[in-house]
């Protein structure tokens, strides 16, 4: 990933250097560490934001999010990501959360400051080598926007290879060819952090809000009450 980032920084003559952390969750620009909100640079997610901002769907009513990941994964980190996607795609803050959890699953009802009622369904149950299954569906007065195909249950790929070799491919970025969709998001976000002081400030503020929302979810699970964020 760092190689890809260096390539972009050089190609576009960005004055700042940036270093991506080992876990891909932050980048150091100058002497400061900034959170990487990789989803903001994933094409399928940013297109949801475009659909929302265009007004073509009308006012948002509900938002359905589901994400199943590998067993043992950190559900809090997953919740942080999904709250981030919710907030980013609707350009809206999070005001309330009700959360309930079992051993490897968590369900939430989230209220945003633009009045949307969202559900977030998380689970960490997949086996080794299985790909995450996620879906983001914005349901509005004039229609629905979703990053998954209607009448399907699992994410699609661009290429399916059968025969002697069985494989599937999903290449999403020619400049960063060879990186996965998730890695591309991380590199693109780190590049944006290096390129824009304004975005760096915005990321710190957003991280604060998302951390508050996760904290509220933890309180909700303990108290089984609807909890206000912040």
């Amino acid at each position: 990933m760092q190689k890809g980032l260096d390539l972009l920084l050089t190609k576009y003559s960005v004055g700042e250097d940036a270093v991506i952390s080992e876990d891909g969750r932050s980048a150091t620009v100058g002497n400061t560490s900034y959170p990487i909100h990789a989803w903001e640079c994933e094409r399928r997610i940013s297109e949801l934001r475009v659909m929302h901002d265009s007004g073509r769907l009308g006012a948002v009513c509900t938002y359905r999010i589901g994400h199943t990941t590998r067993r043992g994964a950190d559900l809090w980190a997953l919740l942080y990501r999904e709250l981030g996607i919710l907030s980013f795609t609707m350009n809206s803050g999070i005001t309330e959360i009700f959360a309930i959890a079992a051993d490897a699953a968590m369900n939430c009802i989230v209220t945003t400051d633009n009045g949307c009622i969202a559900t977030i369904e998380l689970a960490a149950t997949l086996g080794e080598g299985e790909e995450d299954v996620d879906k983001h569906e914005m349901i509005c007065r004039e229609g629905v926007a979703c990053d998954r195909v209607v009448d399907t249950q699992v994410p699609q790929h661009s290429i399916y290879l059968f025969g002697k070799e069985k494989a599937k491919f999903k290449d999403v970025d020619a400049e960063l060819y060879g990186l996965t969709e998730g890695e591309v998001g991380i590199v693109r976000c780190a590049f944006k952090l290096a390129s824009s002081e304004c975005y760096r400030t915005e990321s710190l503020e957003k991280a604060k809000m998302l951390e508050s929302a996760v904290k509220a979810a933890k309180t909700s699970i303990e108290t089984l009450e609807n909890v206000k964020v912040g």
């Binding site: 079992a102 009045g115 949307c116 009622i117 559900t119 609807n226």
Partner: peptide, 30 residues
């Protein structure tokens, strides 16, 4: 626990959008 969302159809009298979560007695969440 449940919440009602803004109606998709503003011109009807009844609710059309809602979200429900909770837990069964055997601990399964839904």
């Amino acid at each position: 626990f449940a919440k009602v969302a803004p109606n998709m159809r503003e011109d009807i009298e009844v609710e059309d959008m809602l979200a429900v979560v909770g837990r069964m007695k055997n601990g399964v969440i839904f």
